[in-house]
């Protein structure tokens, strides 16, 4: 059996974590929403719930845990970093895809039943569910992957450079955001930005999430072949000879 598949099976050794608990969270948040809807009087309008994101945040936590705990265990089993990363990413993609399809299907049911008979909107949220079938699937998939990978990368940065590293990255991201806002504000560009955001399709937003999630893989952490790392060349890194061919984010190489 392929070792990447074995990593997926290892991650699934306790099926509750990746399958059971997400299902329970989804069912619970949905039931809770239905109960709440039944309490508030129906004025004929659409009732929107954000409950469907509960599962996604759970995946953010899973992203953190799979690096802080499962990664060290995988090292004890002599699994290479590359195999661990690919296996974990594959499992995650699979689950994100299944969840996204489930959301889309339940969204269809929701629309077909007039919002579960009470005009509710849980899965088929406005705008997300508009358009062809692949748009909501791509959107949900991208959001889940982004959350998982952001959790994964944050934990990686934390493991490599401790709290300081996380702080530096956090502050940098915040500064970049503030800087962007300042530039937009100082140029009175808000109307244009609004128009730009309004014109985004679900697919485009999914794309943006993908860029966000994969950024550490490609852009802001260079390829290992360059031999340099995120917070720079302060720490020298002796690149192992055969590592040129390793398509793996530098960050993962550097965790001791």
């Amino acid at each position: 059996m392929n070792r990447v598949v074995k990593v997926m099976r290892m991650q699934l050794a306790n099926r509750w974590i990746f399958i059971g608990i997400p299902l329970i969270i989804l069912a619970a948040s949905f039931l809770l929403t239905l109960i709440i809807w039944s309490f508030i009087p129906n004025d004929g309008g659409v009732r929107i719930s954000g409950g469907s994101q509960a599962v996604m945040w759970y995946f953010f936590a899973l992203g953190i845990q799979s690096l802080t705990l499962t990664f060290p265990f995988s090292q004890g089993l002599s699994i290479t970093r590359r195999t661990f990363f690919l296996g974990t990413l594959s499992l995650f993609s699979l689950i994100a895809l299944i969840t996204a399809v489930t959301y889309w299907l339940l969204g269809l049911v929701e629309q077909g039943t007039g919002g579960w008979g009470v005009g509710g909107s849980f899965f088929a949220l406005d705008w997300i569910a508009d358009g062809p079938w692949y748009q909501p699937i791509a959107f949900y998939f991208a959001v889940m992957m982004a959350l998982f990978l952001i959790g994964f990368w944050s934990a990686t940065i934390y493991k490599r450079w401790q709290a300081t590293g996380l702080l530096i990255v956090g502050i940098s991201v915040a500064l970049a955001l503030v800087g962007t806002l300042y530039v937009i504000g100082s140029r009175n560009a808000w109307p244009e930005v609004g128009a730009f955001l309004g014109s985004q399709t679900q697919l485009a937003v999914a794309g943006w999430f993908a860029v966000l999630a994969l950024a550490p893989c490609r852009r802001f952490v260079p390829h290992p072949a360059s031999g340099r790392a995120l917070v720079g060349s302060a720490v020298k890194w002796n690149r192992p000879r055969h590592a040129e061919s390793v398509p793996l984010p530098t960050l993962l190489h550097r965790i001791p």
């Binding site: 306790n14 845990q65 265990f73 089993l77």
Partner: peptide, 29 residues
Amino acid sequence: LNRICFIRESQKYPDSFTAEHAFKSAALF
């Protein structure tokens, strides 16, 4: 690495695991 086993003194295991899960995983590799 396929031919090596190194369990650390302070080996970490996934929080959700039982000893049985750990052995099942090890058996895979």
